Structures are given as structure tokens and as C-alpha cells.
Amino acid sequence: MSIYQFSAVAMNGREKSLDEYSGKVVLIVNTAGRCGFTYQYSDLQKLYERYKDKGFVILGFPCNQFDNQEPDENDKIQTNCMLNYGVSFPLFQKTRVRDTGIHPLFKYLSHQKKFEGFNKFHPVSKILIPLLNDKHPEYLLDDHSIKWNFTKFLIDSEGEVIKRFESTTDPIDMEHDIEALLADVRV
């Protein structure tokens, strides 16, 4: 099985098969516009611009499951991403990434690569980890579910999940892993 068996609703309202990204290195990210990690949109866009012509694509999936940090409607989300962060990589409509109603893609992704913890030295960890322990300890009960916004899954050109990066991994810190996978891609 690979990500190519899944589809999702693009921002234009059309169902889009992830098979369209076959042969590319893909980074799948659950996003939110009012989160302490929202600044990551800028670095994600930089990575996309740097590597899109080499066979790399980022797929953004806005999600409102984590403290109501993406309450806007889909059209406003897309506009905000473009105007505030210059986002030009594909965005999909708001998606459930954990618990009841989880999108099958995110169920698959989260079971392929387990949660291995947050980077406790990341500046936002000082806020995130106590918040989860105090307000949402249920998020930490298993070793696979998505714990917060901006969890990132790196997929190789065959559609296989290679690595999971938590919110506390900044996009630029994934560059070496992306480059390693792109070495095998023919554009």
C-alpha cells in the first residue's frame, strides 16, 4: 500500500487522487492558520520553491482539531496562506487528522510512522508540551496519532512513508532528508 490509494478534496472542491503525485517526493502537512507553528508556512514555501522543479511537492491539509486554530472557511484559508505566506503549493480542504472521522490518508500515515516525541529544545515546546499535558493528555495516550498542527510526513517517489517530523521540527531542518530522496527522482 502507498499514499497513491488515497484521494482528498482539493480547495477547488474536486476530489484529487494522490496518484497524481506518483514519482515525486511528497511532504504531507496538517496545517493551521492561528497556531504557534503557523510561521512554518513560510519555510515550507521556501522548500517548495527550492525543490519543486526537482520532483518535490508539498500537500497542505488545514485542520481545526487542535484548539480551534483553523476556524476559517476553506476559501479564506487559501487566501490567507497566499497573502500572508506566499503559499503556492497545493492545499486541500479542511481535514480531520485524528480521532472520530479521521481521513483515511491520515490514519494510514500515522500508522506508518509512529510518534517519537517532540524536540524539547524547540522554543515553542515550552508552550506546547505543558498545554498538551494539561488540556489534552488524551492526545498523548497512543504512539501513532497526530499530536498537533504541522506534523509532517515525508514520502518517497514510490509513495512510501519514509519519515515523520513533529511540529517541533522546523521545515528547513528536513532539507537534508528531502535532498536525499530527490537524488533518486527523475524529472
Score class of each variant (00 low, 15 high):
residue 2 S to A: 07
residue 2 S to I: 05
residue 3 I to V: 15
residue 7 S to L: 02
residue 8 A to S: 15
residue 8 A to M: 12
residue 8 A to G: 14
residue 9 V to T: 15
residue 9 V to N: 08
residue 9 V to M: 11
residue 11 M to S: 15
residue 11 M to T: 13
residue 12 N to A: 08
residue 14 R to M: 10
residue 15 E to G: 01
residue 16 K to R: 14
residue 16 K to V: 10
residue 17 S to W: 08
residue 20 E to D: 15
residue 21 Y to P: 00
residue 21 Y to I: 03
residue 27 L to F: 01
residue 28 I to G: 01
residue 28 I to W: 00
residue 29 V to E: 00
residue 31 T to W: 02
residue 32 A to P: 00
residue 34 R to L: 14
residue 36 G to M: 05
residue 36 G to E: 04
residue 42 S to W: 01
residue 43 D to N: 11
residue 43 D to H: 10
residue 44 L to Q: 09
residue 46 K to V: 09
residue 47 L to C: 04
residue 47 L to G: 05
residue 47 L to F: 02
residue 49 E to L: 13
residue 53 D to P: 00
residue 54 K to T: 03
residue 54 K to C: 05
residue 55 G to F: 04
residue 55 G to P: 06
residue 56 F to K: 05
residue 58 I to R: 04
residue 63 C to H: 06
residue 66 F to Q: 07
residue 69 Q to H: 09
residue 70 E to A: 11
residue 74 N to E: 15
residue 76 K to Y: 11
residue 77 I to Y: 03
residue 80 N to K: 13
residue 81 C to N: 09
residue 83 L to C: 09
residue 84 N to Q: 14
residue 85 Y to I: 07
residue 85 Y to D: 11
residue 85 Y to V: 03
residue 87 V to Q: 11
residue 87 V to P: 12
residue 88 S to R: 14
residue 88 S to V: 15
residue 91 L to W: 02
residue 92 F to M: 05
residue 93 Q to C: 13
residue 94 K to F: 09
residue 95 T to I: 08
residue 96 R to M: 11
residue 99 D to S: 14
residue 101 G to D: 04
residue 101 G to V: 01
residue 101 G to P: 01
residue 102 I to E: 12
residue 103 H to K: 10
residue 105 L to Q: 06
residue 106 F to C: 09
residue 107 K to Q: 11
residue 108 Y to R: 06
residue 109 L to A: 07
residue 109 L to F: 06
residue 111 H to N: 14
residue 114 K to C: 03
residue 114 K to I: 03
residue 115 F to Y: 15
residue 116 E to F: 04
residue 116 E to Y: 04
residue 118 F to R: 12
residue 119 N to T: 04
residue 120 K to L: 15
residue 124 V to Q: 09
residue 126 K to I: 08
residue 129 I to H: 06
residue 132 L to M: 10
residue 134 D to V: 15
residue 134 D to N: 14
residue 138 E to H: 06
residue 140 L to P: 07
residue 141 L to M: 11
residue 142 D to M: 13
residue 142 D to L: 12
residue 148 W to N: 03
residue 151 T to V: 02
residue 151 T to Q: 01
residue 152 K to D: 00
residue 153 F to W: 00
residue 153 F to P: 01
residue 154 L to E: 08
residue 158 E to I: 00
residue 159 G to T: 00
residue 160 E to H: 13
residue 161 V to E: 12
residue 162 I to P: 01
residue 162 I to R: 15
residue 163 K to W: 04
residue 164 R to H: 11
residue 165 F to Y: 15
residue 168 T to V: 10
residue 169 T to C: 09
residue 176 H to D: 12
residue 177 D to R: 11
residue 178 I to N: 05
residue 179 E to D: 12
residue 180 A to N: 10
residue 181 L to Y: 04
residue 182 L to F: 03
residue 184 D to P: 00
residue 187 V to K: 15
